[in-house]
């Protein structure tokens, strides 16, 4: 029997409008509390241990889910001025490529490969992406934390 983590209850109350609301786990809100990360990691380990008897099922489900994705795929192109813009994905790669071609069937130019941008990051998500009106420049935002805060690149 695996024992679950039992985080410390530290007496704390929120007093407001005459009410006394106990909040014994308020300390978990302190990101720099030294006990925080060990607690979250202990919960992750406990969850994995409780679910260990489903590891074959998890693998099977993953195979089913992945089997429903067309790994090499292409979005329906959007025409902007003389170009067709589209994204595509490649088999075995986590992130899309942003591409364009001269309409109707010019050669492909890869504008951004998010797989490359994601290198060295455990999280990577494209934010707003805008082509300049003359189609010579690309401005885009990139979030590498999951906080939806973007770095802007031109």
């Amino acid at each position: 029997m695996i024992e679950p983590p039992r985080p410390e209850a530290r007496p704390h109350t929120i007093a407001l409008h005459g009410a006394e609301i106990p909040d014994e786990y308020a300390w978990l809100q302190q990101r720099d509390d030294p006990a925080l990360i060990p607690y979250l990691e202990a919960e992750n380990a406990y969850a994995a241990a409780v679910m260990a008897d489903t590891s074959a099922l998890q693998q099977r489900l993953y195979t089913e889910l992945r089997g429903r994705i067309k790994e090499q795929d292409l979005s329906v192109p959007v025409q902007r001025g003389p170009f067709l813009y589209y994204t595509r994905t490649e088999a075995g790669r986590q992130y899309p490529l942003v591409c364009r071609q001269l309409a109707p069937d010019g050669p492909e130019a890869i504008l951004l490969d998010v797989n490359q941008l994601a290198e060295g990051h455990s999280f990577c998500s494209l934010g707003p992406l805008k082509i300049s009106p003359d189609h010579t420049l690309l401005a885009y935002g990139l979030d590498t934390t999951g906080g939806m805060i973007f770095d802007l690149f031109v």
Binding site: P133, I149, F153
Partner: peptide
């Protein structure tokens, strides 16, 4: 030559 801004929010327009 990249121009770069940190902590941008969701909106971006030319």
């Amino acid at each position: 030559m990249p121009d770069r801004v940190a902590l941008m929010a969701w909106s971006l327009e030319w």
